[in-house]
Every structure is written in C-alpha cells, then in structure tokens.
Design a protein around this nucleic acid. Structure first.
Length: 854
RNA sequence: GCCCGCUUGGCGGAACAGGUAGACGCAACGGACUUAAAAUCCGUUGGAGCCAAAAGCUCCGUCCCGGUUCGACUCCGGGAGCGGGCACCA
C-alpha cells in the first residue's frame, strides 16, 4: 500500500517555489492587484494552532487569487516590540533583542514548513530601526499636522513597579505583577488625536461592506456617539459656570441636583477648604475600577456648599454633589440629576433625601396622578410639570430646550463620544522611542528629522523596577536641538498598537528610505482581504483606520480605509484533561478510551475529560503545530484546518479529524498517482463518444469547478473541501475502461488537483507532476467551468401532494408544464396519496418541484 | 442594564430569491483481506412503525408556541437556552 511521502515532497516543493521566486510580488500597474494580509504574529517563541489556522486561510486566498490571474501581494512580518521580551530579559537574563530575534528565527522556520505562498523578501520586524525610524518620522509629521499633544491624564499607576499599567493589566484594582493597589495618578502623557476623526471613523463604517457586521457594530459602540445638550449652569455667588452634558435635556425641569466627578477641577478647588471632601476624593481614587468592584461599590456622594441655578426656573437652586459614579472622562465630567427619569439618579436621590419630580408621563397616563416610586420612567411620553415644555413629546421637548439654552447663552445642543484620544506613551524599554526632547528653556522640542532614528540603547538593566530608559546613565542626556542647552530625551516609548497601525502600508515598500513609497501604496493599498482574530476587532482595526487617515493628511497615502475586506476567524479549541490530583495534562499524556473517557498514558489512571475550550498554555490543552507537521505533514494540518468547521466559527482540534485528513490525502494520492486505467497524455483531445458514467463524471467535474470557486469567494472553505471530496469519490467510481473514460478521468484528476492546490499545495504539485505535467502548479491558471456542462438535460423533480413528498419524476429540462403535470399525476404513489380525489390545483415550478393540491 | 449573534443526527457541519432536510467528514456497527494486527476496501447509520424478507411505504423530526404560504431549517410575532461585545456613559 503506497503511502504519500510528505517529508520528501514538502521539502522538495518548498525549495522549488523558492528557486522560482514564485511568490515574490512586484508592482505592475498593467495587472490587477490583490493584497492578502493576515495579522502578523507577536514572536512569543513558537507558532501555535491559531497561527496555523490564520495563515492557512490567508494562503488559500492568496493562491486562489494568484491562479485567477491577480498580481498578489502576500507578505509576512513580526509585531516584535512588547512587554514579554522585557519579562524574559529580567527572568532569564537575556537581552530583549536577542530573545526577540531568536524567536523570530524559530517561528520563521516553522512558518516556512507550512508551505505558505509568502513573499519573504518583504519581511519586516517592528523592533528593527529600519522600521521604527519611519514610525518616528510619521509621528513628527502627525505632530506638525496637529494630531499629537501631551497632557496630564489620570493613569493606572503601580506604586511598587513604578510604572503605568494598561487597563487590562489591572486586576481587581491591583497590579497584575506586583499585587499592589493601583492608584489613579495624574501624569503627563502623549496622545494621538483620534477623536478628531470620531465622526468619520463612525460614518465610514457603513461603506465597509466586506467587513463582518459584528465588527462594524463593535466599532460603532466603541466610538459611542450620543447626542443631547450641554448646559452651563450658573453657580450661586460665583462668576464661573458648571458645564454638564445630558442626553435628556427634555427632563431639565425634573432636575433636583447636580453631581461632579471626584476628578473634576472644581472638586479639587473645593477640597482645599474642605478636609472631609478631600478625604472622600482620595478614597474614590483608590477604589477599584474592575467590573466586580464597580458592581459592589455603593453610589456615594458628598454634598458641597455650591448651588447651581436652574436655567429656566428663577430662584431655584440645585445642590452640587461630588459623586463617585461620575466619570471625568465622559461628557463634561459633571451631570444634572433627574431622579424621575434615570434609575441611578433616583437611587441617589432616595439615599440623600432629594426631591423627585416626574416630568415625562407615559402615553395615556393621568398627568395629575403620575408618580415615580422605585422605578424611574425612562420611556417616551408627554412632558408635564415643565413650564413651557408642557404637552410636548420627548423629541420636540429636546429640540425646544436646545433652542432656549442657546438663546439664553446657557448651553447648546451637543454630541459627545465614548471614544477618547489614544494614550500612546508607555514607560517601557522594548518599544519605539518617542522622538521628542524636553528642554527647560524651549519646552518640548521634536527630534530633528536628520537625527532619526532615535535608537534604543543596547546596554540597559532590568534590575530596578520602572523604565530602564529612565535609569540609563547617559542615554537621556542630550543637547537641545534649538538652544543647544542641556536637555533631556523623552524616555517613554510607543504603545505597540502604534507599530501595528501602519505595517500593512510599509509592506508595500518595505525597504524604502521614507515611511512609504507613494507609488507603491497607491498601487497595492487598500488591503483587499485582511484576516485575523476577532480579539482585534476594535483597537487594532480602529487605530489602523485612524492612522491611515492621519497618513493621508500628512501626504503619505491617498486613501482613508486600509482594509477593504475583513474576515475574523474563529479560535482553535481542544478538550482539556485533568488527573485525579487536579493537575492539567497535555493531550499527548492522555490516551482516549472512548467518548469522554481517557486514561493517563503512563500510569493508566483515569483522566477527567473536560470541556472543549480555547487552547491555552495554562490548561495544557495545546497541540504543537510542529509535532503535527512532523507526524502528518503541513498539507494534512492545512486540510484539517479547512475541512469541517466554517472559518468564522471555533474549530475543535481532534486527532481523529487529523487522521481523516491524512487518510484523504493518501487516497487522493493513490487515485491519481496510481490510476487503475492508463490515462491519455496531457492535452489529449476530447474523444467523440463518452460512456454514460464518463459523461456524468465530466459534468460533475465542471459543476465542482463552479461550486468550489463560488465557495472560495465566500470563505466557505469547509464546503469547498466537501465538494472536492465528493468529486474524487465520484471519480473513484468511474470504471475507466468505457468509451472516453480515460480522458474524463484525466480531466477530473487535473481539475481536482487544481482545485485542492490552494489548500494542500505540496501534494497538488506532486500529483501535477505525477500525472505527466511539467509546469509548476503554483503558476497554473484556475480551471474554467463550461457553462453548458452545468445544466443537466434530464432533471429529477420532486412531486408533492399537499406539500408532502410522494415521489420523483425525471423530466427533460424546461419541459412544458402540461407534460410535467401529467408525469407527476402518473406516479403511482402520488395517485395513491390523492386517494381518488381530483386535484384542485397543481403547482409546477419549472425544473424544481411539482405540488399537487387536493 | 444596553447592543449583537447562535440553536439542524451520537459529533463537526451541508442545504436558505421558501421547493426532495442531513452533502462532506468524524465516531459507531457489520463484513472482506490477514495466522494476527496495522493499513486498505465494501456496507449500514435521524427516530418510530408496516413487511417473512427485500423493494417499497407510513408517521414523526431542523430549540419551544403561534402566524403567513400550495409548500417554512429558511419569512413574520412571541418565548426559552447558549455565546459574544460594551457597561457607574449622564
């Protein structure tokens, strides 16, 4: 029994592709381009199954589009800056650069074994000065364009590690590493002005028709546009105003208090003369920000001496509270409270004994008797108890209040966003240095472009907590480029999301001495198909969309949207295993004895088979891609990845499924490389006569071309695989010795090879050669389906009686309705089901179905 | 709390301008080959029933209830379960 020798074949064809330069892309305006990109990996050490799935999907698209005649760009690189390298440096005493480049070398070799049709000549790593120099240039350009600023912001500060933490690194109010209570601290930080594009980023989502609806919605929610009004309350005995934002200006007559954030400047000012308020504010800042902490936390307030004056009721004074639930980041950092129509305001009012005035009555309610009990009324209705607004509906009242506020110079209609400017500074070493200099005399001075790149120093120490760049003895001491006086280099580095916000553009001209070559990006961008995990649905994609706009504003590119098509793949999941002692076990430590039962390979003791969940190192339910490729080859891994589950859903990795893919490859190999009949030579003319079996197989071949093409276009790779398998099943059943059957088999085999080429490229090349072809399959065009063969002359049509299937009839295509009706009524079982009754109606849908109604 | 998605055999999933539900595979079972095993090949496989058996046929069946229709996995209304995103958002 012949076994397909994947070891020899895969190495051979990878070498052949490389030698031929089969996947190196070159801009060619005379040809249509297609840019396929998968999210580039972080070089953590080894590739995992998520990578295998991601890059297999992308490679299918790349190879398919190449076969269709597109000039395909399919590059690969490394998202190489980031915290794990610093952790490794501290724990293992290796330099972050060495650790990173070692990992890249390992992972590159692993990716190469997958046989991906990548243009490796364009490889880039974001930690290389040849990349980050250009990022610094872009930053300076953005600065000139007014898209960069530095301001004091509240950040998560870990007092033990002496560093700022990202929100995700704060767990239940404590630093993830130190365990110290995280403080909110005001620090000067760099920001990119993404909010300048809030409306654009939101409105342009509608036109991204080849993005998943889900991702567009997530971005929409993230930007979070809501419209209402800003109101500037006069303050009793003061000249300044208190600005609040509300989405319900129509309820202004129901206002009974105002509340400001503990971080509001006014709160700071009042706290100076009020020690209990100062203590309250300090307490709020120490409180956790985790979801659980917020849930548990009471809504509390501290009443100040301030009184806000109602804009429309002369003499009405509203007490002003500092309240722990008011966020400084959102709206104006201050609110007016209308307890009747907002649940949180109601809870607060009940707690502090504040009045509750209903001002919106539900439709049909008696305005005189409508009262609020424990539930705020938040629906639409008719305005009551509200002076000039009485009788209006909610929407009309909102507009009227907007007009009146503007007329009285006490406010105006306003729109606010949840989206905040992008805080890009990090107090870390392994990142792109922010190219700025702090001078006592001149302030913040951009690094002159001729001094770029600002390189990271190599000699750093990770012994002390905090930022190694800050601890470096000399690196930060520089001369001010303007006044030549003593100055200090910026020691913050960029958030690594900055690195990934433009790499897709750099791939178009990866060795250019400017960030991007305009001709190259004009040809290649946008990315036609981007593929990656849904976990990046918001931040990475939003930042990239912003960066593209900023690059357009600064003349680097000529478009707004970087990714014309987006696809989010599902995760790879696997059963998890635990021994009796509760220790997690790797799949290779476990021997499955049946559905849901297993024993330990060595001890033979029973193992607890757990849920199917996302592969993770902590639960050990991981399978190393290298092990699978060693055992079965890359094509088997690729085919399994594509076979059973639709790519957007989670895929369960099973040994049995892999075996199935492996079995199929061998079956296909034997079928084509060792055919039971001698095939005519390549390109032999079609014989005049075909046996019925040959005719059917020939038609199926062309139907499969049409179906597989259609499925590949729509990312239904699992169905495409199924169709190819069905074709090979049918070809297996062709006897081969009938008239023309040898020719049909050659057609069928060559077609099957071409169709499966994008999925299992090594095997396909091997078979292409085995069947007598000498060209490189990777350069062969996609097969064409002949339209005439897609429709059958004789069609089997279902016959129903009263909607229930009672039989089938075989009819010529497009046969007259009367013939169809007669044939249907003549089916014995149909006649029986009619029980002698006369049909009231016979519905004939040409070539599809006949339904007899009695 | 707000927004969104999903629910089809033992399992992954096919089929949706409404038209033969279960393609393709996994698992399972039976058989062939073999001293045996592996590999491979052939067959069966939604449930219940009619029939000596087979061919064949009947009833039920796409989360639940209701509707539209000659005909509903598909469309509409209501509900349940599971999953995801955001969340003191004013």
């Amino acid at each position: 029994m012949t076994r397909y020798n994947f070891e020899a074949s895969e190495a051979k064809w990878q070498a052949a592709w490389e030698k031929a330069g089969a996947f190196a892309a070159e801009a060619d305006p005379s040809r249509p381009k297609y840019y396929v990109l998968e999210m580039f990996p972080y070089p953590s050490g080894r590739i995992h199954m998520g990578h295998v799935r991601n890059y297999t999907l992308g490679d299918v698209v790349a190879r398919y589009k190449r076969a269709q005649g597109f000039n395909v760009l399919h590059p690969m690189g490394w998202d190489a800056f980031g915290l794990p390298a610093e952790n490794a440096a501290r724990d293992q005493k290796v330099h972050p650069a060495h650790w990173t480049y070692d990992n890249i070398a390992t992972m590159r070799a692993e990716l190469k074994r997958m046989g991906l049709s990548l243009d490796w000549t364009r490889e880039l790593a974001t930690c290389h000065p040849g990349y980050y120099a250009h990022q610094q240039k872009l930053f300076l350009d953005f600065m000139r364009a007014g898209l960069v600023y530095r301001k004091e912001a509240f950040v998560n500060w870990d007092p033990v590690d002496q560093t700022v933490l990202a929100n995700e690194q704060v767990i239940d109010g404590r630093g993830w590493r130190s365990g110290a209570l995280v403080e909110k601290k005001k620090l000067a930080q760099w920001f990119l002005k993404i909010t300048a594009y809030s409306d654009e980023l939101l409105d342009a989502l509608k036109a991204l028709s080849r993005w998943p609806e889900k991702v567009r919605l997530m971005q929409e929610n993230w930007i979070g546009r809501s419209s209402g009004a800003e109101i500037r309350f006069r303050l009793k005995g003061r000249d300044d105003r208190l600005q609040v934002f509300t989405t319900r200006p129509d309820t202004i007559f129901g206002a009974t208090f105002c509340a400001i954030s503990p971080d509001h400047p006014l709160a700071d000012e009042l706290a100076e003369r009020d020690p209990t308020l100062a203590a309250f504010i300090a307490e709020c800042r120490h409180a956790g920000t985790s979801e659980a902490a917020l849930e548990a936390q009471e809504k509390r307030g501290h009443e100040t001496q301030l009184k806000a004056l109602h804009p429309f009721i002369a003499g009405k004074e509203l007490p002003v509270y500092v309240a722990n639930f008011v966020l400084i980041e959102y709206g104006a950092g201050a609110i007016f409270g209308c307890p009747g129509h907002d649940q949180r305001d109601l809870d607060f009012a009940r707690k502090y004994g504040l009045p509750v005035i209903p001002v919106v009555a539900p439709p049909g309610a008696d305005p005189e008797r409508f009262a609020i009990d424990d539930l705020a009324y938040t629906e639409d209705g008719t305005i009551i108890n509200s002076g000039f607004l009485d009788g209006l509906e909610v929407e009309a009242a909102k507009a009227e209040v907007g007009r009146r506020l503007a007329a009285a110079d006490l406010g105006r209609p306003a729109t606010v966003y949840r989206l905040r400017d992008w805080l890009v500074s990090r107090q870390r070493y392994w990142g792109c240095p922010i190219p700025a200099i702090h001078c006592q005399r001149c302030g913040i001075v951009p690094v002159p472009e001729e001094d770029l790149p600002v390189r990271l120093p190599d000699d750093v120490s990770f012994d002390k907590p905090g930022n190694p760049l800050d601890h470096h003895p000399t690196w930060k001491n520089v001369e001010c480029p303007t006044c030549r006086g003593k100055a200090r280099r910026e020691t913050d580095t960029f958030d690594t999301f900055v690195d990934s916000a433009w790499y897709f553009a750099r791939f178009c001209s990866p060795r250019a001495d400017i960030p991007v070559d305009r001709q190259a990006v004009d040809y290649w961008l946008p990315v036609d198909q981007y593929i990656g995990g849904v976990e990046h649905a918001i931040l990475h994609l939003l930042y990239s969309r912003f960066f593209t706009r900023a690059m357009r504003k600064t003349g680097h590119v000529g478009l707004d949207e970087p990714f014309a098509g987006m696809f989010t793949q599902g995760m790879v999941i696997h059963e998890s295993y635990k021994d009796a002692a509760g220790n997690w076990l790797y799949p290779e430590e476990v021997h499955k004895t049946g559905e849901g039962s297993a024993v330990h390979v060595e001890t033979g003791q029973a193992v607890d088979v757990g849920r199917r969940e996302v592969m993770s190192k902590s639960k050990k339910n991981v399978v190393a891609p290298a092990r699978i490729i060693d055992a079965y080859g890359a094509d088997t891994a690729r085919l399994f990845m594509l076979s059973d589950s639709p790519p957007e859903r989670d895929l369960e990795w099973t040994e049995a499924g892999v075996e199935g893919a492996w079995r199929y490859l061998n079956r296909l190999y034997r079928l084509v490389a060792e055919p039971k009949t001698k095939l005519p030579p390549p390109g032999a003319p079609k014989p005049n006569a075909l046996s019925p079996a040959g005719e059917a197989a020939w038609r199926l071949t062309h139907k499969t071309i049409a179906a597989v093409s259609e499925h590949l276009e729509n990312f239904r790779f699992n169905v495409a695989v199924a169709q190819i398998r069905a074709l090979t099943n049918a070809l297996e059943d062709v006897p081969g010795d009938g008239p023309g059957e040898g020719w049909v088999l050659r057609q069928g085999f060559e077609t099957a090879i071409k169709l499966i080429g994008p999925m299992t490229p090594h095997l396909a090349e091997e078979l292409w050669r085995a069947i007598g072809r000498t060209t490189l399959l990777a350069r062969e065009p996609w097969p064409k389906a002949e339209a005439a063969l897609l429709v059958d002359e004789q069609i089997t049509i279902a016959v129903q009686v009263n909607g229930k299937l009672r039989g089938t009839v075989s009819l010529p295509r497009d046969c007259p309705e009367n013939d169809a009706r007669e044939a249907a009524l003549a089916v014995p079982n149909v006649a029986a089901a009619m029980a002698g009754k006369t049909p009231r109606k016979v519905i004939v849908v040409a070539n599809r179905i006949i339904n007899v109604v009695v």
